[in-house]
């Protein structure tokens, strides 16, 4: 049983290291698996290398000031003009997965000097960043273009095999 436990831990560690990788190389990984929020949708296999090309090596487009590249948004530059590389460039290390938890709300309320009080949570950050750009660039924008629904997701959206019986007209009120 302990062997299984250790294997599981090792697997988890390996997975964490895979996700931490971007901090270790300037170019970042070729692909990143975005799986920390997996629930209704399967993990996203993110082609990092391709997106680096799309933004012409300007990491700040997605990573703000954390990669050490010069920030272009003048609103950020007011403070982060000379900010160096951050310890972590992973989205989830700054963007909270539970932004509206009582603890997080309290944390924001207690931090009197905190400027970034309107920072989106992890899910919001992913979708706004990805989708915002996809809309501008004419890239795919449907949910399942990036991640397929899990079975739980299909049950949640009442789609696929959980879809309501067709042919039934919506009851009028």
């Amino acid at each position: 049983m302990s062997k299984k436990f250790i294997t599981a831990w090792l697997a988890l560690l390996a997975l964490m290291m895979l996700n931490v990788q971007p901090a270790q190389s300037m170019e970042g990984p070729d692909t990143a698996t975005l799986d920390s929020l997996t629930d209704l949708f399967a993990p996203v296999s993110f082609n990092h290398a391709m997106h680096v090309d799309v933004v012409a090596n300007d990491c700040a487009v997605c990573h703000h000031h954390t990669t050490g590249t010069k920030v272009t948004d003048e609103r950020c530059a007011r403070c982060h003009k000379n900010s160096g590389e951050a310890n972590s460039v992973a989205c989830r290390d700054c963007h909270n997965a539970n932004p509206f938890s009582a603890e997080n709300l309290q944390k924001i309320a207690d931090a009197e000097l905190l400027f970034h009080t309107d920072k989106p949570g992890l899910k919001g950050a992913y979708h706004r960043k990805c989708l915002g750009c996809h809309q501008e660039m004419g890239a795919p924008t449907a949910c399942e273009n990036c991640h397929t629904k899990t079975e739980k997701g299909e049950a949640f959206y009442r789609s696929g095999k959980f879809a309501p019986t067709p042919g039934k007209e919506p009851a009028s009120e």
Binding site: C143, F156, Y157, R158, S159, F162, A163, P164, K168, E169, P170, A171
Partner: peptide, 15 residues
């Protein structure tokens, strides 16, 4: 719909 245990919708929520 899920949280409030509402009746099934007439169409899927991704329609």
């Amino acid at each position: 719909n899920k949280e409030q245990e509402m009746p099934a919708p007439d169409k899927p929520f991704d329609d």
